[in-house]
Design a protein around this nucleic acid. Structure first.
Length: 620
RNA sequence: GCCCCGAUAGCUCAGUGGUAGAGUGCAUCCAUGGUAAGGAUGAGGUCCUGGGUUCAAAUCCCAGUCGGGGCUCCA
């Protein structure tokens, strides 16, 4: 059997399970009103609305038991057709208003896909001719559902499944609609595959950056500031190392770093256009003198102000201002997710002022930086083009031009990319860099945005070679994206095992005993290491060597040096090396100074000699 | 914000309508130990906050706060 046949079969199993779950839920709550029940990655869900009752995960056993009864009964799935008007009557008789709404959409426009339909028309009743002749139904036992299929032949052929969670979901994704309950299940052809999937989820949990961040003493969250990380000394070392790598590489490429105010008057955001599009998502504050201020949520308006300070010649362009100021955004409380979605974070931002002719070359240069940055971490990423959103600023023609430019650049780059319509910024289209976390969920990381609007809003100019004044174009770009989110992704991909140059603690020196001569030798090793710029710590606790080794392993320290009589005698150490590291000096005696110098050079070169494992949870 | 779930020692968690538990960490002492946990003793808790029910609430109910999973997937 080919893969596609396997996939078709699995898809049918999952879809059939959605029906079986609906059957079970209807038996348990006969008054249930059903929404939709599609197949999703790894499983299925069904949206249900039960008046006066909420399904909770405590109900899963009950629902699963009922599902098993349906499966054991091995009811055949029987396909049938009704005319559209018959179908609507069926939905009315069965008291299934959501199905009725779907049927009305089918009748009017031949589809139920909400995003393909005019928002105002959704579910409205249509008189007269129908866009479809008839609609399909599937019946198993006493349960009948509007359905395109396909299904497995009978309810006995659905493989292994498990209900996972229940969540709220608005009918057709619209906040003004009733909220339904979405019951999710995962399903696989065999028990073994299901167990493997569940095991992968368990593995992914161990890599959760929030868990590792706490275990490795990198950062924590506290109720005093929801969504804003407290960075601990070890986390700050990692953070600063990433920033200093970024700074070094950008200074080489003629970027100039600026720092600008964190609180700005409302007027700044009125001028930039953010007031209309973003003010609600900003933290704001007022003064006794009645002025309104917004806490910096993006860097671009300030960069525009910096540009405007002086006159600029075409000879000055491209002009590249970078900054890493802290930003705050009022993200909805329910959307916060550790470092992945925070309310306070820093970006490795830059605003590049260019002439229209320079856009293409500048993008090529940025792509080089992206390639360099992401390859050094060994991370996988993909590009995504975001086009004009519903709420946008400026002339659609300018937008079309900008979108065409970006498409041409992406195609010229030879990189694969996807398109997300309507996902651009309000001032221009963008290219996002997308990465996945340990559970395979995609996150926007870097973003390269083209902006024709804000330079106009701020009245930015440069003098061209012919003496005329022209408006520059601005490229907004971040490579890491948010430092916070990037660190989160990095932690999950590395499972906390950072390469030497990033490791918050590079070397741990563990003493065998607390005798004066031992301690003195160990302290001397630490002092030498620090002299070389290494992050090296002493463990002189009154514990066994085994315990100290274990502690160092748990903290994922790359090198551990045990100091006792032998080392003092020979002046040589035998480094214990973290298992994932591919280095030569493992388990061989080496003079202390040589070892420290080798590690210092390695750290300085910023090479990642560590094996990075991919997204485990994605493999299925 | 909305739906489901959770909150007990610094951390991970168990537990019961009637005076609070383990492991780990921390402190002290003993042991001076050679590559993933040596031993003993001790300190440490408004059982998230505020209401309600009750003779009695950390436990049951309500609200809030914070945290987790979702809220894109369309017969």
């Amino acid at each position: 059997m080919s893969d596609s046949n396997n996939n078709d079969q699995l898809h049918a199993m999952r879809h059939s399970l959605a029906h079986i779950m609906a059957t079970a839920i209807q038996r348990l709550w006969p008054e249930v009103k059903l929404g939709i029940g599609p197949v999703v990655e790894n499983g299925f869900y069904y949206d249900v609305d039960i008046e006066g009752a909420q399904i909770s995960d405590e109900d899963f056993d009950k629902i699963e038991a009922e599902m098993h009864k349906v499966i054991e009964a091995n009811q055949p799935f029987e396909q049938s057709n009704k005319s559209i008007d018959e179908a609507i009557s069926w939905a009315q008789a069965a008291k299934q208003p959501y199905k009725e709404e779907l049927l009305n959409d089918l009748k009017r426009s031949g589809t139920t896909v909400a995003k393909d339909l005019d928002a105002d028309e959704l579910g409205t009743i249509t008189e007269g001719d129908s866009a479809v002749e008839s609609v399909g139904f599937y019946t198993n036992g006493d349960f009948t559902d509007l359905c395109r299929g396909p299904h497995v032949e009978s309810t006995g052929q659905v493989g292994a499944f498990k209900l996972m969670r229940v969540s709220g979901a608005y009918w057709r994704g619209k906040v003004e609609n009733p909220q339904m309950q979405r019951v999710y299940g995962v399903a696989f052809a065999t028990d073994k595959e299901l167990r493997q999937h569940l095991a992968l989820l368990e593995e992914a949990k161990k890599r959760d950056h929030r868990k590792l961040g706490s275990e490795l003493d990198l950062f924590f969250f506290h109720e005093t500031a929801p969504g804003m990380a407290y960075w601990l000394p070890k986390g700050v070392r990692l953070y600063n190392e990433l920033v200093s790598f970024w700074r070094d590489e950008h200074e080489k490429r003629d970027y100039q770093e600026i720092v600008s105010p964190l609180i700005n008057k409302k007027d700044l955001y009125v001028t930039s256009g953010h007031y209309d599009h973003y003010w609600d998502e900003m933290f704001t504050t007022g003064t006794e003198e009645g002025e309104e201020y917004g806490l910096k949520a993006m860097n671009c308006p300030n960069a525009m102000v910096v540009y405007k300070r002086g006159n600029h010649s075409y000879r000055d362009l491209p002009l590249r201002y970078s900054d890493t100021d802290t930003l705050h955004r009022y993200e909805l409380s329910g959307t916060l997710n550790g470092l992945f979605r925070a309310r306070g974070f820093r970006q490795d931002d830059a605003h590049i002022f260019v002439t229209e002719d320079q856009i293409k070359d500048e993008y090529a240069k940025i792509f080089e930086i992206v390639e360099q940055f992401y390859s050094i971490f060994g991370l996988e990423y993909s590009f995504r083009l975001g086009t004009r959103p519903d709420k946008f600023m400026g002339d659609p023609k300018t937008w079309d031009k900008a979108e065409a430019e970006l498409k041409a650049i992406l195609e010229g780059s030879g990189q694969e990319y996807s398109v997300l319509e309507g996902d651009g910024a309000f001032y221009g289209p963008k290219i996002d860099i997308v990465m996945k976390d340990s559970l395979g969920r995609p996150w926007q990381m870097g973003t390269l945005q083209l902006d024709f609007q804000q330079p106009l809003n701020f009245g930015l100019k440069y003098t061209d070679s012919d003496g005329t004044e022209k408006t520059p174009v601005v490229i907004h770009r971040v490579i890491y994206g948010s430092l916070e989110r990037f660190i989160g992704i990095l932690i999950e991909h590395l499972a906390g095992r950072f390469p030497i140059w990033l490791a918050p603690e590079q070397i741990r020196v563990a003493t065998v005993n607390q005798e004066e001569v031992t301690v003195k030798f160990a302290e001397d090793v630490v002092a030498q290491g620090r002299e070389l710029g290494l992050r090296i710590e002493l463990d002189n606790n009154n514990e066994s060597v085994g315990k100290k080794i274990r502690d160092a392993e748990l903290m994922k320290v790359p090198y551990t040096l045990v100091i006792g009589e032998k080392e003092i005698e020979t002046g040589e150490v035998t480094p214990r090396v973290r298992k994932d590291l591919e280095v030569e000096q493992a388990d061989k005696p080496i003079p202390v100074t040589n070892f420290l110098k080798t590690v210092a050079n390695e750290a300085k070169s910023r090479v990642s000699k560590t094996s990075i494992s991919g997204h485990e949870a994605n493999r299925s």
